[in-house]
Nucleic acid binder design. Sequence first.
DNA 1: CCCAGTTCATGCAATTATGTATATACTAAC
DNA 2: GTTAGTATATACATAATTGCATGAACTGGG
Lengths: 306, 306
Amino acid sequence: MNWATITFDWNQARAFLVTAEEGSLTAAARALGQTQPTLGRQVAALESALGVTLFERVGKSLHLTGSGLELLDHVRAMGQAAGRVSLTASGQSQQIEGHVSITASDILSAYLLPPIVARLRQSHPGIVVEIAASNAIRDLTRREADIAIRHLRPDQPDLIARHVGQGSARLYASTAYLDRHGRPSGPADLARMALIGFDRDGVLLNHLTAAGLPIGEANFRSCSSNGIVAWHLLLQGLGIAVMPCDLADATPGVEPVLPDMAPFDYPIWLVTHRELHTSRRIRLTFDHLARSLRAGAAMAAAQVGG
Amino acid sequence: MNWATITFDWNQARAFLVTAEEGSLTAAARALGQTQPTLGRQVAALESALGVTLFERVGKSLHLTGSGLELLDHVRAMGQAAGRVSLTASGQSQQIEGHVSITASDILSAYLLPPIVARLRQSHPGIVVEIAASNAIRDLTRREADIAIRHLRPDQPDLIARHVGQGSARLYASTAYLDRHGRPSGPADLARMALIGFDRDGVLLNHLTAAGLPIGEANFRSCSSNGIVAWHLLLQGLGIAVMPCDLADATPGVEPVLPDMAPFDYPIWLVTHRELHTSRRIRLTFDHLARSLRAGAAMAAAQVGG
DNA sequence: CCCAGTTCATGCAATTATGTATATACTAAC
DNA sequence: GTTAGTATATACATAATTGCATGAACTGGG
């Protein structure tokens, strides 16, 4: 191998990659945790080292040149390989100390995970947990998180999934709202009531009409893709929403709507990347989450049953 | 993309790659033009950053751990992508100033290229030429040289080849040797004479017996894979060797053996990588070599014919 | 036209990495 | 056992890189 050809500065290549992908030096600096002057100098140094103009400086913004576009392909390949290095390294790392990122829906993140993480950090203070609360599904194969809590069984072969239990959800509203608008005695009464939705694309609507509820788009008077916002809309008496039983049942001033209706059951899956499951630190977190969620789901099931 | 995962130091990754491939920090430092302490610190820093032990320090030598082996695959992919970056960059570079490496057989390198390179450097002082004299075929796809002079038409599709003429070779010996051992009057007389070979694998022998010469392994009394050494063995009167006509005919004290025999003709191909042919600097060198070699071959052909 | 909001470039101080020289440890051969 | 050869670790002075603060230039909106 002719090593002389790869003696350009690889960190400068990374600077170029992130700058090109993010669109500006400032954004790249944000993404990499460096500063804009540093990135600017690194890209300039790479241009000088390779003898190629990568960006055209047209005042404010940087525009990729044709040469830059050609090079970007290969630098992107470097980046993907670097990602695999990082993934494999995390998997191989047998240290307990270190960073673990968990992604889950915002409601789960806010109301279920904190006590679980607290116990984990008590028993293993070296583990630094980052919770990425998001209702968008993070791509574990792109390393957007180490562990994900999902409600669908993942089908990608390079992911490991464990079914840790069943969650239940029902229709809830605040006592104030029900006092004002009356408590529905059967599904038919819902037609005239206000519902709080999660999104605009009607997934929730389809789900509810499939359960035989006589509602339409007009029933959704407010909505938020953020589950916690939806929860607070409910608390403020803006209407009826589907909420996890264990959260709603434990909240004073909130009561189930149509309590005799069967709850919606959803599975809880714990998912991680196959490579990461060999990491002691991540496996430990994974197992702790599995135990805690299983216990929590059992407790919630007991609550619902009782 | 989650850039946070690739924020480990990529130069440290390169240090690990070259150290693992070369087998020691010292060798890696040699290969990269750095020093052993630097490489040692970079590898150690990478181990610390990734939380993985890459090498086991058993006294003198470093042994890759299992984790290191796993990671090496992906770091190697980074290196290959880096090589493509470098290749593409050289191709995209429109600068005349810069480095061009040429590989050719040692005889060609020593006796034919220097005046050609001298003229090139006179007209374009910014071009720094490196001549890699080697009878081993360098791999242009691995960027072991920018331009190669070959005697076989290359068949790889990503290489560009131009046929720049025909070279001629004959059997030669020093006048001193022929005075001592007599001048053969026909091919049959060669059986008792000393030949100078290029290598041990008999390629030359096959070539000569195919031409109808009655010789065997026993005729090769001396040999060197280095063509210049073989040439000096000839000059010292150690026997008969196949040599390019334009070199031998221009050397006093050297005369052809069996001058009526048809010369061995071999093609001269100029080869470069498809990517590099878009580079102004390399294309200029390529064209200069093509012109010069074509003229040289024509001149030599005229010499042989006359 | 001006102004807020961004973005890239530059000067300077502090940090960080690098090379030189040297010490130490191991292997192989006589 | 001893010695030459080779490899990795450490101390310190030097060189390079980084971040901060600031300036300059462009975009879009009122």
